[in-house]
Design a protein around this nucleic acid. Structure first.
Length: 509
RNA sequence: GGCCCCUUCGUCUAUCGGCUAGGACGCCAGGUUUUCAUCCUGGAAAGAGGGGUUCGAUUCCCCUAGGGGCUACCA
């Protein structure tokens, strides 16, 4: 709970998994709140009952918990301004719509969908903007055009109706956006948006203004896609006579190639997650992969997301959450959209893996551990983690790229085999195998010394032996420092593997 | 189409009128007594175009171009 009057909300609608653009909006809200000792609120905007998806709300909460950005107030958490689910606030909204009607600032509209379509077609044909506005409303079926007693009769009869805002014909609307500065609109460009729907539920526009007011929201931090409806919201505050919160419209996260908003399709197409955690659609069964399951560390995702549209005043790149809180300000959020960069995301993750506690990495890997990983004991596993974490971008790569630590390689790199594997290498390795069985090296330095001595004594170039040795033992062309590897594997295993490749890949030259 | 927003290296960005335009990812080269998906060093790489304002513009203003968002009884 914050000690200041700064109150911000993240207000997603539970229509599916939370897109990383939404995650970033939540993050910026959180950072701003914490930086200013404010309160971070989760409000679920589920006024569209037709789009409700079971589990989506839980998904949102789980995602943000994973990322370490908890709510001070909200669904599940509670608070003094609840309920925090708009569907549970349903009966609070209508009165505000009627208040506007009483003040002549809104009106009933009885038009059917077909009539609305016809109106739009007619206007389009006449080369006019197809809007329900100050001009067109006078030719529609509403309480402005219908005789008073017919309106009354329709209402009493229970006819379907909506309540629309009655916007002035030509009035300048302006507000100062924290990120963009003054933004100016004219009501002549807007239309009489529906405030209360036929099912009695408010639209986003009404609900968000009423709730933000009732919940004493001080700053509305949301995506740029809301900018066009901001003037409508400004008008609503004005009509209600309420103080307006400050607005900050965030730049969009764009697809890596080409242009446009980042979408699930882009992730599927280019092979990276667009969602924080895995999700399976309960209706279609469609699966979406998440950062968590892909092996990303939550801190890395937070850091990466923070930098998509924000930058500190110095050149520091790596931030933990608390440091982000300290450094964050809306003024340093950029105006233009940011293309998502998968390589940078990987780099961030690598940086955090590098710095991660080995025990934490082990915990992270827990669900992926098989018998073979545990067979050689706790310390062995930890040594592998220590050695491999410097090489990999994703946690699970510690296990996959380091699989040779747990069992004989399944495959042997073809290129190394073709280039480095020959009779000379084979006999050299066999000689070395015999040598270490005798000299019993145990530490990394011992193995290093052993190879040096063996090479010198037999007048072999040490370098010519190293790659075949690495390859024979791991099957790979690269990996951790070779002598560290040998020391961990142990003499017996090293000798075994040397013998194995000599059998498997008999050399003729 | 209309309205609104945006425009510095390929990408994310720094610069709050006077810089050899800085950093990071990626890329290239070299190095780490010979591995590399690590690490270090170095390198190539940018102010969309045109007008103004100013002693001086990447920075302020205008126009053009390009990109994006919105344009539902969805949020």
């Amino acid at each position: 709970m914050g000690s200041s009057n700064i109150r911000v909300r993240f207000a997603p609608s539970p229509t599916g998994p939370l897109h990383i653009g939404g995650v970033r909006t939540a993050l910026y809200n959180y950072l701003f709140a914490k930086k200013n000792n404010g309160t971070f609120i989760l409000r679920i905007e589920d006024t569209d009952q037709t789009r409700f998806v079971p589990g989506a709300e839980q998904y949102i909460i789980e995602s943000l918990n994973w990322l370490g950005i908890p709510f001070d107030e909200g669904v599940e958490t509670g608070g003094d301004y609840g309920p925090y689910r708009q569907s549970e606030r349903k009966n609070m909204y209508a009165q505000y719509a009627y208040q506007l009607i009483d003040n002549g600032l809104a009106y009933y509209a009885f038009d059917t969908p077909e009539e609305l379509d016809a109106m739009r077609e007619r206007l389009k044909a006449a080369n006019m903007p197809p809007k329900y506005d100050a001009a067109s409303r006078m030719s529609m079926k509403n309480s402005l055009t219908l005789p008073e007693d017919e309106v009354k009769e329709r209402l009493e009869r229970g006819d379907d109706f909506v309540i629309r805002i009655k916007l002035p014909r030509n009035e300048e609307v302006r507000f100062e956006d924290i990120i963009r500065g003054w933004v100016v609109f004219n009501t002549s460009q807007l239309d009489d948006k529906v405030l209360l729907k036929g099912d009695g539920m408010p639209t986003y526009h009404l609900a968000n203004i009423v709730d933000d007011h009732l919940m004493k929201i001080s700053h509305v931090i949301r995506g740029e896609e809301w900018l066009p409806s901001a003037p409508l919201h400004v008008m609503l505050y004005k009509f209600f006579g309420w103080d307006m919160p400050q607005f900050a419209h965030l730049p969009l996260i764009l697809k890596p190639d080409g242009n446009g908003k980042l979408s699930k399709r882009d992730g599927d197409r280019l092979g990276f997650p667009v969602f924080p955690i895995d999700w399976e659609d309960p209706k279609t069964g469609e699966k979406s992969s998440g950062y968590r399951e892909a092996g990303y560390l939550s801190d890395a995702v937070v850091n990466m997301l923070a930098f998509l549209g924000w930058h500190p005043s110095d050149n520091q790149e790596l931030f933990h959450l608390e440091e982000l809180v300290e450094a964050f300000s809306l003024e340093r959020v950029s105006k233009s959209g940011a293309k998502f960069d998968q390589d940078k995301a990987k780099w961030f993750n690598h940086q955090f893996i590098l710095r991660a506690d080995n025990q934490d990495l082990k915990t992270l890997l827990a669900s992926r551990l098989e018998d073979k990983h545990l067979a050689k004991g706790e310390q062995y596993l930890m040594d592998v983690i220590q050695m491999m974490k410097e090489k990999v971008s994703f946690a699970q790569d510690i296990l996959s790229a380091g699989d040779f630590f747990f069992e004989v390689p399944e495959e042997y790199d073809e290129k190394v085999r073709n280039k480095k594997w020959n009779a000379e290498a084979a006999s050299g390795l066999q000689g070395f195998a015999a040598y270490i069985e005798e000299s019993k090296p145990s530490s990394s330095d011992d193995f290093d010394a052993a190879l040096n001595t063996y090479a010198t004594e037999n007048e072999i170039n040490k370098g010519k032996l190293m790659q075949p040795l690495r390859w024979a033992v791991s099957g790979q062309a690269g990996g951790p420092p070779i002598f560290d590897m040998l020391a961990l594997l142990g003499i017996e295993e090293v000798v075994n593997r040397i013998n194995l490749v000599c059998e498997k890949f008999a050399t003729s030259n």
